[in-house]
Write a protein that binds this DNA or RNA. Structure first.
Length: 480
DNA sequence: ATGTCC
């Protein structure tokens, strides 16, 4: 029960070893007393369940945007030893490499407001969205395989961006070790028509403006200034990644039994890191991650084209360069210091953002002195945030921080609460123009359905897991 | 999140 939790300090709650039988390490949930009230019992239970898995290192961690997920909580971070540990699709999630990218511009808010409706219309037309939406990219079988290996670099080779984009993308926009031969026919089929599509649910493309800066020097280094217009793109690997996850959950359920791993919840299906099943999943997951990076790159390209049309100017003159692109649903092999010893671990981040500190060799040279840019999308009515990674995150959370607001209402509850309201109208009254493909998406995604993003970000800032740089406010939203 | 049940 929740009263078995122990408060460590203002921002941390411990799930003690005796919370549940079988826990190998404790759990740590980053919440203050306010967000603690919104903790779901089931999500806390999931933190404890993850702590029972073989080879887990330090503790089972969750961020302040924690909520129920498949097996592992969303907002969870779990790192496993490569010898004794496991790898689990539930620790990554169905939307492999769901992530966020942020584009800057030279435009000011007051220059865009008179053209905002037009801009949102053009963006809605240029970027396919909605459940099962089909892209305008026509792929042959070989193209799709190239995407799985090259990720965003494939898009550059097809004249949709330049090397400064992939330089500013986590993992350079393509992760090594993807194996297209491990992808099912079903996944290929679903992926063929969906490259370059936004999807639905909480995925979005948003025109925003910078309304508050917390760290002038850092904002300047990232190319951000007050009242500047930015664009945030939040999407993932669409039906392709979903199918990869589905395919491998089946493989992993059999593998867990085969290798004698006791599962406290069958949704924790996993396999020992060095098993062929785990290695195959990793190679397939990487292919899906690359699919997602290509997806965000295509969408960003069309975003630049849309701005070019509406403002009759070149993207270069508009200053539309990529600030950064983060993955928040992925497993990566990384080196971390554990009790004074440098160790290679497989870090699962499921609804958690990497937040590497200044000086880390995996950061692009232009940002190495700053720390990794962290992009946190909020709901469509409130705000989004830019932060930077820290040394404290490296020490406490395997270089990780939160990923978003986190739901407080289920989709069903949200639809019920929105009955009789016009969500688009409520947003328009607040100066936010919204266009959506799905009939019920706006209800599911209204502000009331989410935790307060500012409260979530304040916890990770106060805990030192990342530091606030800027707050972005929505102006125009394209929803799936 | 997801051709929201083959």
């Amino acid at each position: 029960m929740i009263d078995k939790l122990r408060r460590i300090d203002e921002t941390r709650l411990e799930v003690p070893l005796d919370y549940k039988k079988g826990m190998r390490v404790p759990g740590i949930i980053y919440v203050d007393s306010l967000l603690e009230k919104e903790l779901e019992l089931q999500a806390v239970d999931q933190v404890a369940n993850v702590a029972t898995l073989p080879g887990i290192v330090n503790c089972s961690t969750a961020m302040p945007d924690i909520h129920n997920g498949y097996g592992f909580p969303i907002g969870g971070v779990a790192a496993f030893d490569l010898k004794e540990g496991i790898i689990s699709p539930g620790g990554v999630g169905y939307d492999i490499n769901c992530g966020v990218r942020l584009l800057r511009s030279n435009l000011r808010k007051d220059e865009v407001i008179p053209r905002l409706k037009d801009l949102v219309d053009v963006l809605y037309r240029e970027v396919p969205s909605g459940v099962g939406s089909k892209g305008k990219v026509r792929l042959g079988p070989d193209d799709e395989k190239r995407i799985l290996i090259k990720g965003a670099v494939w898009a550059l080779e097809n004249n949709m961006g330049d090397p400064s984009d992939t330089e500013r993308t986590e993992s350079g926009g393509h992760i090594e070790g993807a194996d297209p031969s491990l992808i099912s026919g079903k996944a290929y089929e679903r992926g063929r028509s969906q490259q370059g599509t936004l999807g639905s649910g909480n995925h979005f493309l948003e025109v925003q403006y910078v309304d508050e800066i917390y760290d002038e020097q850092a904002a300047n280094a990232l190319g951000l200034f007050t009242n500047q217009v930015t664009v945030m793109i939040h999407t993932g690997s669409r039906g392709f990644g979903h199918q990869v996850c589905t395919d491998f959950l089946e493989v992993m359920e059999r593998a867990a039994a085969k290798y004698g791993i006791e599962l406290y919840d069958r949704e924790l299906a996993c396999a020992p890191f060095h098993s062929s099943e785990a290695q195959d999943y990793l190679a397939a997951m990487r292919a899906a991650a690359n699919y997602a990076w290509a997806n965000r790159q295509c969408i960003m390209h069309w975003t630049r084209e849309a701005f070019m049309k509406v403002f009759s100017s070149s993207p270069r003159a508009l200053g539309m360069s990529l600030v950064y692109d983060v993955a928040h649903n992925i497993a990566k092999i990384e080196e971390h210091m554990i009790k004074g010893e440098r160790r290679k671990l497989v870090v699962h981040r499921k609804g958690a953002t990497r937040a590497f500190p200044p000086g880390h060799s995996e950061l692009p040279v232009i940002y190495r002195h700053l720390g990794q840019p962290v992009l946190i999308p909020g709901d469509m009515g409130r705000a989004s945030f830019v932060l930077l990674g820290t040394e404290k995150a490296m020490q406490e959370t395997f270089g990780s921080t939160c990923h978003g607001a986190g739901r407080v209402l289920s989709r069903h509850q949200a639809i019920k609460m929105a009955r009789g309201r016009k969500i688009w109208r409520e947003l328009e009254d607040r100066g936010i123009i919204v266009r959506s493909a799905g009939r019920e998406t706006l209800a599911e995604e209204m502000s009331d359905a989410y935790k307060d993003i500012s409260a979530v970000v304040d916890v990770v800032h106060k805990a030192g897991l990342s530091k606030k740089v800027a707050r972005l406010r929505p102006m125009g939203v394209v929803k799936g």
